[in-house]
Nucleic acid binder design. Structure first.
Length: 497
RNA sequence: GCUCCUGUCGUCUAGCCUGGCCUAGGACACCGCCCUUUCAAGGCGGCGACACGGGUUCAAAUCCCGUCAGGAGCGCCA
């Protein structure tokens, strides 16, 4: 058995898009489970649109997602170079060979001329197919014309009738009518290879065994197989993946919100969660479990079980998957992921001491379960850092108007002022006493206490809130955290006013 | 227009190949209940789909044909 070799071949003309990321992911998963080789090849022959910046960013995004490659532009390998722009002589050499064997021929038709023909066919309701005009030009004649400096593209000579079919790993047997496939251009008149040709040469020279790519390439496949055959190469196995769509069932694009993978990072989506979600878009595990790690996915994934129909990207489900992944993280890891978001929001100090980290881990543990994404944390943390009695919400104001409230808060204030070390245990004892003193209980008791401590009607459970606030009050932050005692006395003053 | 691909709850899907076990299963979302000082989380429950029409068969989500709908492709772009 030949060793499985697959490749992901993006062109560096923009940020890594989730659709492409999914293609990369399926390739990677297949390679890893088959104990094969995953190759990164950069298709940068479109000089106009390719940039070094995108090139670098692409690799960064792939690595962030957890995809590593065994061969590629930066890590090298035995089948390099891995950038198409550095392989031009290879394409040229193989084109020469095809020309020599008369399997390809120079075409002198001008782009304008071809455009006209295409338009005419379209108007007549026909599929545009190259007429084969330059096919019959004798070798002597065409060599002479080329020698005289006339611009020519190189076309592959293909059969003009019959059926070509291939077996697709996800779609089964696919058939195409050769009369609808004209002689494809191999090399453009400027000497650069056309995409469909470069891919074939690269896939063969890199010994690719399985081509796993988007459905938009299905119609390219017969042309590529024809090229493989002309070159005398065995074509690889093909697998065409369905597309990822937006909510309105059109191809996913920026209009649909976050689509670049680095955007998910900024939103606080874990790489493991995006990875997990993307695999679920078109594949389901045999036992129906959905929250899976990379290693589990490597074991369970089956390329043949991938769905043939397109899938709509559902951010809600991704968020849910993300929450499930966050839950499995140890506290200190959660704190590390949360850190940049809180730092940017100006809540954390320049210099984090070990005590700060310890506190952060505790605070994140308490608050993150209310979040789907780390980016939501700064807003959630405001319950610790902000204590704005003036901005109190309506519900909280209503609570203060209740008959028990003033009495409860006054009693609470008296007691907390006399205590050295306030913590949740002390709070528990106090609530009992307050209940006895005031005769208020249940909601009448807890609601005012909550408002006195948070200036809000809802939020974190007090058993988590109190320790985090008390310990936070002892640490240095850009915006200091007020202790519980201070909060209560401010509340009392606010009511009395 | 032509060619190709696809069509199961709002969404992702299981089941389809190898008809009966499907009164069509799971998950997200939504709704309700429980838990809880509130909200969330969690637990429990509910709503909700075989695109349509013909065949074949004792029996069809599953096989065949047609229709319709959505998507993709029709470049000297990738």
């Amino acid at each position: 058995m030949k060793r499985v070799r697959v490749r992901f071949a993006p062109s560096p003309t923009g940020y890594l898009h989730v659709g492409n990321a999914r293609t990369a992911l399926f390739n990677w998963l297949f390679a890893r489970q088959q104990d094969g080789v995953f190759i990164l090849r950069v298709e940068d022959t479109d000089v106009e649109r390719s940039t070094a910046e995108y090139d670098r960013k692409l690799m960064e995004d792939l690595r962030w997602l957890g995809l590593d490659w065994d061969e590629g532009p930066d890590v090298g390998g035995e089948y390099g170079p891995y950038r198409q722009s550095q392989r031009l002589d290879l394409y040229r050499a193989h084109a020469e060979k095809l020309l020599k064997e008369d399997k390809a021929y120079p075409c002198f038709c001008s782009p304008e001329e071809l455009e006209q023909e295409r338009q005419k066919a379209l108007d007549a309701g026909q599929t545009p197919v190259y007429s084969g005009k330059c096919r019959g030009i004798s070798r002597e004649k065409s060599t002479r014309r080329v020698a005289s400096g006339e611009k020519a593209a190189i076309r592959l000579r293909t059969p003009s009738e019959g059926i070509i079919s291939f077996h697709d790993l996800v779609r089964g047997t696919l058939q195409f009518d050769l009369s609808l496939i004209g002689d494809p251009i191999l090399v453009r008149s400027n000497g650069l290879p056309a995409y469909n040709y470069a891919v074939v040469v690269d896939d063969f020279l890199m010994a690719i065994t399985h081509v796993i790519r988007g459905e938009d390439h299905i119609q390219n496949t017969p042309r590529q197989i024809l090229t493989f055959q002309a070159l005398g190469f065995d074509p690889p196995v093909f697998a065409h993946l369905s597309m990822v769509m937006g909510k309105d069932n059109t191809r996913l694009s920026k209009r649909h919100g976050a689509t670049a993978v680095d955007q998910f990072d900024k939103d606080g989506i874990l790489p493991s969660a995006l990875f997990n979600y993307l695999v679920l878009l078109g594949w389901a595990s045999p036992d129906g479990r959905e929250v899976l790690t990379k290693d589990e996915l490597i074991g369970l994934f089956r390329l043949e079980k991938v769905s043939r129909s397109s899938a709509i990207f559902d951010y809600d489900k991704l968020a849910w998957i993300n929450r499930q992944h966050i839950k499995t993280l140890p506290s200190h890891t959660k704190a590390e992921y949360a850190f940049p978001h809180l730092k940017t929001a100006g809540l954390l100090p320049e210099e984090m001491t070990p005590l700060h980290w310890e506190w952060l881990a505790k605070a994140v543990d308490a608050l993150v379960e209310k979040a789907d994404r780390f980016a939501e944390l700064p807003a959630l943390f405001s319950i610790l850092f902000d204590f704005f009695l003036l901005n109190m919400d309506e519900d909280a104001k209503e609570i203060l108007k209740e008959s028990c409230s003033l009495e409860v808060i006054r009693s609470f204030s008296d007691k907390i002022a006399r205590v050295e070390n306030f913590d949740y245990q002390v709070f528990g004892l106090m609530t009992k006493e307050i209940k006895e003193d005031t005769g208020c209980k249940g909601k009448d008791l807890y609601h005012p206490l909550r408002v006195a401590l948070t200036a809000k009607a809802s939020g974190l459970e007090l058993d988590k809130f109190i320790p985090v606030v008390e310990e936070g009050a002892k640490l240095a932050f850009p915006r200091l955290i007020k202790s519980c005692a201070q909060r209560v006395s401010e509340t009392l003053a606010f009511i009395d006013r």
